[in-house]
């Protein structure tokens, strides 16, 4: 009996030491600001996530997430990543510190678009069959509310002031803004045909939607919710990303295997960059200069330098990579 007690005590001491060391190392890391950015690439056909160290573009780990993972939302405040799983009827929660899956959350239907509020306190999940956006808190992942939206909601984005959630209602050819205080739709407006991905700029003044069926981007005034302009891009555009202080908008064209670059001052296409086959998810590195594009058919990620408008790197991932959403951590 006595020996067991001693052993337990020793174990506790060791554990405490480990925790202390982890704490100290953690402090050192955070104070010296060497936290690395990671890109979380959903491989839909492989039921896995490729975790890319975005400081050297190497895949550091591939983890299993079942349910045909598609959407990604990074919660930098809580060091978590949320992965929507359309066939799993919910989303999975990954921990950035350990790079492991820590839990699954059931939503029902088929989860697709996913986003986090600026404070990291709420996660929003769009369901393309139920036509809803479900709101979960990120402490214990309890459902706060389910909001009825337009048909087949897909891409979502939260404004920097944390006041609005924008959602693309794909089959309704519209987007809605949801008031994040009341969790009610404030306005809805028509855009091009089949809006899928969307972006809102940092000032919260403009929204850009990629319209799959009309091969264009709709620019919407985020305040009065009216259409400003339509810009033609390539075939079946999927999603958008802003870079270089929101001066450039990048749009993935699935059927052309290209990315269109729009100058946001003139709203004109200034370049078309060849990437891999069936480019889909697109997200900007925290350096605001490098754009990551998931090429579904090639199972690769193309990295574009926004300054030179050239592909500077191609990273091998898993089969059918989609990475729909803001998929790079800070």
């Amino acid at each position: 009996m006595q020996s067991i007690k001693v052993f337990t005590l020793k174990k506790t001491l060791v554990l405490n030491n480990k925790r202390l060391i982890t704490f100290i190392v953690g402090m050192l890391l955070s104070t010296s600001l060497i936290a690395k950015p990671y890109a979380y690439i959903t491989n839909q056909l492989d039921n896995s996530i490729s975790i890319v160290d975005a400081s050297n573009n190497k895949v550091i780990k591939t983890i299993t997430v079942m349910g045909k993972p598609v959407g990604v939302a990074v919660n930098n405040k809580k060091s978590q990543v949320y992965i929507s799983t359309p066939n799993g009827g919910g989303f999975s929660v990954l921990d950035i510190k350990t790079q492991r899956k820590i839990r699954d959350v059931k939503v029902g239907g088929a989860s697709l678009g996913i986003a986090v509020d600026v404070m990291g306190k709420r996660v929003f999940v769009a369901d393309w069959y139920e036509n809803t956006v479900s709101v979960f808190e990120t402490q214990s992942f309890k459902l706060i509310q389910t909001i009825q939206v337009g048909k087949s909601p897909s891409g979502m984005m939260v404004s920097q002031d944390n006041r609005w959630l924008y959602v693309a209602n794909r089959v309704d050819d519209s987007i809605s803004k949801i008031d994040l205080t009341t969790l009610k739709i404030s306005k809805t407006t028509q855009v091009g045909k089949h809006p899928f991905g969307l972006s809102v700029n940092h000032s919260g003044e403009r929204i850009y939607t990629a319209n799959v069926e009309s091969d264009d981007v709709t620019i919407v005034d985020a305040i009065d919710f009216t259409k400003i302009k339509t810009v033609k891009v390539g075939a079946r555009p999927y999603a958008t990303a802003l870079a270089l202080n929101d001066s450039l908008l990048f749009v993935t064209n699935q059927d052309d295997s290209t990315v269109s670059v729009i100058d946001t001052k003139t709203d004109k296409v200034i370049s078309v960059i060849e990437v891999g086959e069936k480019p889909e998810g697109i997200s900007t590195h925290p350096d605001d200069q490098h754009i990551y594009v998931a090429n579904w058919l090639d199972s690769t990620v193309s990295v574009i330098d926004a300054k030179t408008l050239k592909v500077v790197e191609t990273i091998e991932t898993g089969e059918g990579c989609r990475a729909f959403g803001l998929f790079i951590s800070e």
């Binding site: 087949s152 089959v171 050819d173 045909k193 089949h194 089969e319």
Partner: peptide
């Protein structure tokens, strides 16, 4: 147009 634009199916790779 409602039929032509509604989604649900998933892209396959053969």
């Amino acid at each position: 147009s409602a039929v032509a634009t509604a989604h649900g199916p998933v892209r396959g790779k053969l």
